[in-house]
Design a binder for these strands. Sequence first.
DNA 1: GCAAAAGTGTTGGTTGTACACCCATGG
DNA 2: CCATGGGTGTACAACCAACACTTTTGC
Lengths: 231, 231
Amino acid sequence: MPPNNFPDSIIDTLSIDCLIFGFKDGELDILLVKHAEGISKDRWALPGGWIQYNESIDDAANRLLHSLTGVSNIYLEQLRAFGHVDRYPANRVITIAYYALVNADNYSLNPGFTASDVQWFKIHDIPKLPYDHNEILYFGYMHLKQKVMNEPIGFNLLPKKFTLHQLQQLYEAILETSLDKPNFRRKLLNMNLLKPCNEKQEDVSHRAAQLYRFDKKMYDKLREKGFIFEL
Amino acid sequence: MPPNNFPDSIIDTLSIDCLIFGFKDGELDILLVKHAEGISKDRWALPGGWIQYNESIDDAANRLLHSLTGVSNIYLEQLRAFGHVDRYPANRVITIAYYALVNADNYSLNPGFTASDVQWFKIHDIPKLPYDHNEILYFGYMHLKQKVMNEPIGFNLLPKKFTLHQLQQLYEAILETSLDKPNFRRKLLNMNLLKPCNEKQEDVSHRAAQLYRFDKKMYDKLREKGFIFEL
DNA sequence: GCAAAAGTGTTGGTTGTACACCCATGG
DNA sequence: CCATGGGTGTACAACCAACACTTTTGC
């Protein structure tokens, strides 16, 4: 696959790999695909692909994510580049890793052309992956732990409307700790980032909880005034 | 410059750019080089270069930094990749940005082969730079502000032995605020990360201050126990 | 009534902030 | 004796952790 400058050709020394985080059943998940071809045929790996000459790296990551999930407008950020000399056995390839946060139960998954299967794996039950994908995953998970403490991004893993209990479980799963319910409630509510919906939970076998949604406009306003999200 | 797989050849779609931070006269500085050739001849820009097929991207960044400053073992971390389609006018080049923290008065600078000059610029007095270098610089500065709050890396900008006042001025310069002296002292000293030297300042026209050094071993030990540096 | 989760209240200790103050040294 | 920075003490407010408690709902 020699490089050339035709618009649709790809950059053959650079790839993109995506860490797609989801949250189901109280546990943090990662989306993996099973390669249908190439030197890692039949192995689970991070979904990835190549960058075209006529798209930015962010666009490339979004395109890959869209083709995999069918969903656009997903929270997606660059993690960093990984470039050990021998990370890819066939030839020299440097990869730029991205991480995405998605609400796992919103859509169906599509393996696409180069994958034969696609599946969620619990973050603590990841198989041995090819190349440096385990390293990328570990780095990304540590990054997420850090990030989730200082920026209100966790909401992207939940449905639009969620309860405080769901939110707490999410944080407990990501941070691998347990949190005090009353204190967690107060802390979050006092930030004024959660707008109560006019709805309550339904079909639960206990008192129905208030549903909230993340108020992004309020967050932007508060941040201008120097507010910093924490914990 | 067509790519090939000879060990010493470079990857022509990928470059490295370095944000080299220094601290002088109470102000945060950035090192820029004046291009001696190429499409940005005679313009100031971030120091950068190319990645060879037989070196990792971290090694490439270290090599570039060493050739520029003559110093090894400098604090150096990857920032992230920048890859807009038209960031580089001649052809498609994605760049991986690194940032380094150095003690500016420890060595002499060497422009190297492709630069005619090299110079420190105050962070608030940066000229218009070519490509997306101003954007990289802004992103890196924001990243540094964030990082310096949560990890004890500021010390890399100071001499091995420093006073609390110097440290405070450093933080004030990076964070663009003023800090309360007594509270700053207590906070830092209570962390037990500063080991007092058996020395005091000399040749100052006021009471000589205690000199401290950053105790990395202690930091590693404390971090294992769950300690998190803050502010 | 019981289980399960929603939701509120209280308390004591820690931490942060603001500021007043004394000390040492050179000029 | 004054300017400059070094260094300590204190007091109030804000915050946080721990835990006891009440409420609502389905079975």
